[in-house]
Design a protein around this nucleic acid. Structure first.
Lengths: 232, 232
DNA sequence: GGCATCAGGCTTGCATACAAGATTTGGCGA
DNA sequence: TCGCCAAATCTTGTATGCAAGCCTGATGCC
C-alpha cells in the first residue's frame, strides 16, 4: 500500500487513535478546508479515502461523520482483529530477534505513557502495539488493515464504558512478547485472543452520548437530575 | 462498511476480479469520464477510493495504474489471506447450517463455470469463494477486507505463470466445505492454508509483460529468438 | 550521425462556481 | 401557546477552468 497519505488523513486518524475525536463527530468540508488552508477539493479527497477505509461515513448532503459502530459491527471488528492477529502468529515459522526487541521497546513506551498522564499517547500506544507487532512480523499489508480495524475498535471503546485497565493491557502485551520470545507462537496466539477478548468483555454498556454536552459545559449547566452541589 | 460504492468502482473491481483488466493497465480520468458519461470529478473520486483500497496507484501527473505487486507484496497478500481465513475459521465456534448450503451452492456454480468456457466467470467465482465463505460465516467486515486482498492476488496470478488448475481449486473448495460441514474447523483451516499455498506455489516464474505485445501481434512479428516456423 | 534543448500536447492537481437537497429559523394562524 | 408552513441558510454533489508537470517529437548544434 501507500504511505504518502496526505497530512489531512493522518491528522484525523491520529486524533481518532488518540481518542481526541469521538464516534459520531461531524467533520465539515468547509471547516477542515479553513483549518488546513486548502480548498474543499483536497479535504474531500481525504474524507473519501477515510470513508473507503471504513473510518468515516457520509450522509448525503448532511455531512461527514466518524462512524458509530453498532453492537454487531463492533463484534465483527473485534473478531476480525482476533482472526488477523491469531492468523499471522500461527502462520509465522520463526520470529526474527529484532522483532522481539522492537516490541519490548514498544511495551516500555507504553509503561512510560501509563506512568505519565498523557491519556492520548496511552490510548494510541496501546492500540498501536498490535499494528506494530504485525508490521514487525514483516507484513505491512496486514499492518495497514489492522491499523484501520484498530481505529474502529478505539471508537467503539469510547462508546462503551470500559472496565479494562491500561495497566492490565500492558501486562498482557508483555506476556505475549515473552511467549513470542520463547518461540511459543501458539501460546502467544492463544493469549492474544484472550487479551482481545478481555478488552471486548470490558465494554459493558453503551454510553449514550449527550448531544448537548458541549453547550452544557459552556454554559456551566448540569444534566437534569444531577446534584448541583457536586459542582466544583 | 458501505455498499453504495458508485457503479464506477464496482465495474473496475469486477473487471479486475474477472481478469479482464491486468496489472499495470492505465486508467485515464478523461477516458473513464467519457465512458461513464460523467465529469472527471466523479471518476476521480472512484479512483481515489480504489487507491485507498490498494487496488490502484497514482503516478503524479502521469496517470492512474492498476497495481503491479512486487514479489514481496505478492507474498504479503497471500500470507494475509492465509491469516485472515485461517483466523476466522479457528475463531468460529460453530457453523450455521445455511452457511454450508450457501457454500455448496457456490461450489456448484464454480463447476458450471468451469464446464462452460467463460474464463471471466470462472476466475471471478474461484476468488469469490473465499469472500463468500467469510461473509457466510457472518463477518462482513472481514469479507470486505478479503475482497480487496483477493483482487490483489488475482492481479498477481495474472502476472505469473500459473500451473494451478481451476478444477483442482474447485475440488479443494469442495473438500473444505465438507470439513466445515463435519464440524472439523481445525481441519478446514489447515486445508485452507494448504489450498492457498497450492495456488501461491502454482505461481512459478514471473511473466514479464511484453509492452510491445499488442503492437507485435498487430504487425505479426515474433519476439526475438522465437522460431519463425512455429507461427500458425 | 549523435546529442542536447525546447516547444507542444496531454495528463493530473487544485480551486472555484453553481446546483440540489437538508436543516433550521422565523412567522403566521388557530 | 402550540403546530404548521415557507424562506433562508448551510451542507454536500458535480462540473468546469486553469495551473503545473511529464512525455514526445522536432529542431539546431557539435
Amino acid at each position: 500500500m501507500e504511505q504518502p497519505s496526505t497530512p489531512i488523513d493522518r491528522v484525523i486518524v491520529d486524533a481518532i487513535l488518540a481518542g481526541r475525536i469521538r464516534a459520531g463527530t461531524r467533520l465539515g468540508e468547509q471547516q477542515l478546508a479553513a483549518l488546513f488552508g486548502v480548498s474543499r477539493t483536497s479535504v474531500r479527497e481525504a474524507l473519501i479515502r477515510l470513508e473507503a477505509r471504513g473510518i468515516l461515513q457520509v450522509s448525503p448532503r448532511r455531512g461527514w461523520f466518524v462512524i458509530e459502530p453498532s453492537l454487531e459491527e463492533a463484534q465483527e471488528a473485534f473478531q476480525a482483529r482476533c482472526a488477523v492477529e491469531m492468523g499471522i502468529l500461527l502462520a509465522m515459522k520463526d520470529i526474527p530477534p529484532e522483532t522481539i526487541e522492537t516490541l519490548r521497546e514498544h511495551v516500555r513506551r507504553e509503561r512510560e505513557a501509563i506512568a505519565g498522564d498523557d491519556i492520548g499517547a496511552r490510548s494510541y500506544l496501546l492500540g498501536d502495539f498490535h499494528v506494530c507487532m504485525v508490521e514487525a512480523l514483516g507484513n505491512r499489508t496486514l499492518a495497514e488493515i489492522l491499523r484501520d480495524l484498530t481505529a474502529r475498535t478505539v471508537l467503539i471503546s469510547a462508546l462503551y464504558q470500559s472496565t479494562h485497565d491500561a495497566t492490565e493491557s500492558c501486562d498482557e502485551h508483555e506476556r505475549i512478547v515473552a511467549l513470542m520470545a520463547a518461540g511459543d507462537l501458539a501460546g502467544a496466539a492463544a493469549l492474544m485472543v484472550t487479551h482481545i477478548g478481555h478488552v471486548e468483555a470490558g465494554l459493558t454498556r453503551r454510553i449514550e452520548r449527550d448531544p448537548l454536552l458541549d453547550l452544557r459545559q459552556a454554559l456551566r449547566l448540569l444534566p437534569k437530575g444531577a446534584d448541583a452541589k457536586q459542582r466544583p
